[in-house]
């Protein structure tokens, strides 16, 4: 069990040292990607790790804005994780948000509209969990930029939602894992939404294409910034790791630049 294959991403996230308590517990993770390199695979990896058998108390609440369940089910099955079975076991909750629209204009002052309801749904789901699992819930959002679209551009509503979810992380020890597209905000003068979400973040994972262009062997590079990363000796500091990756159907290969044979 201990010498299960660890990869560089696990190491960078500190998933190698312990499985109990879950290292990402109470943390906010943000995955950033761009048009050229999708960061979805990191989300899949984390979903798989969270639901894996080593941590039987973990529960995932997945808010899907960009893909339906069938898409994730197929991918995760190839990674060795059956989402449908996990859903039946009550460890995986899939909220299909593909068609969610926030009716904030019609409802006038009530504001957050759809997001308020969504937050309550999440909170109720967590409260209904068995006592052991309550503090081990993970909320995953697969595309924050689409949340903004759903809110019709009022990113304040999305930020409010994020803050509410953030309180869950500090109160109940949930973790929050989100994906966003960085390149949308780079051309903005004052990307408030981006800066505010980054402020909440404990772990930042950035997927970028290689500077040298496309390659069949290397799909891109990951930069992981882990704030208050605790190592074995107990001292904490920021940790930055940088490595390349190659995505496969059933796994992802991580390696340091130039170490591939």
């Amino acid at each position: 069990m201990e010498n299960r294959s660890l990869n560089l991403l696990d190491e960078a996230l500190g998933l190698d040292y312990q499985t109990d308590p879950w290292p990402l517990r109470g943390k906010v993770v943000l995955i950033e990607d761009c048009v050229e390199t999708s960061g979805c695979f990191v989300l899949h990896q984390l979903l798989k790790r969270t639901l894996s058998s080593q941590s039987p108390n973990n529960t995932v609440i997945f808010l899907a804005f960009s893909h339906p369940l069938s898409h994730y089910d197929r991918i995760l099955r190839k990674l060795g994780c059956n989402l449908v079975a996990q859903r039946e076991n009550g460890r995986f909750f899939f909220f299909d948000m593909l068609k969610l629209l926030c009716p904030d204009e019609k409802e006038g002052k009530t504001g957050k509209g759809g997001f308020t309801a969504l937050y309550w749904k999440i909170q109720n789901t967590i409260c209904a969990l068995p006592e052991n699992n309550k503090n081990h819930a993970t909320i995953m959002i697969d595309d924050m930029s689409l949340m903004e679209v759903a809110a019709h551009g009022s990113s304040d509503h999305v930020l409010n939602f994020m803050h509410y979810c953030h309180t869950l992380t500090s109160e109940l020890g949930c973790s929050l894992i989100t994906l966003n597209h960085e390149d949308i905000y780079t051309s903005m003068e004052r990307p408030t939404f981006m800066l505010q979400t980054k402020y909440l973040v404990d772990v930042l994972i950035k997927a970028e294409p290689l500077a040298t262009g496309l390659a069949a062997d290397v799909h891109g590079q990951l930069t992981v910034l882990n704030r208050d990363f605790c190592n074995v000796k107990g001292s904490s500091k920021n940790k930055i790791s940088n490595f390349h990756f190659k995505v496969k159907e059933n796994s992802v290969e991580y390696f340091y630049p130039g170490t591939r044979t």
Partner: peptide, 17 residues
């Protein structure tokens, strides 16, 4: 620029774009 990735996580890398 982008090739569809439905039901898979593996990107399709072209020799030339």
């Amino acid at each position: 620029h982008k090739i569809a990735r439905i039901n898979t996580q593996v990107p399709m890398i072209l020799e030339a774009t």
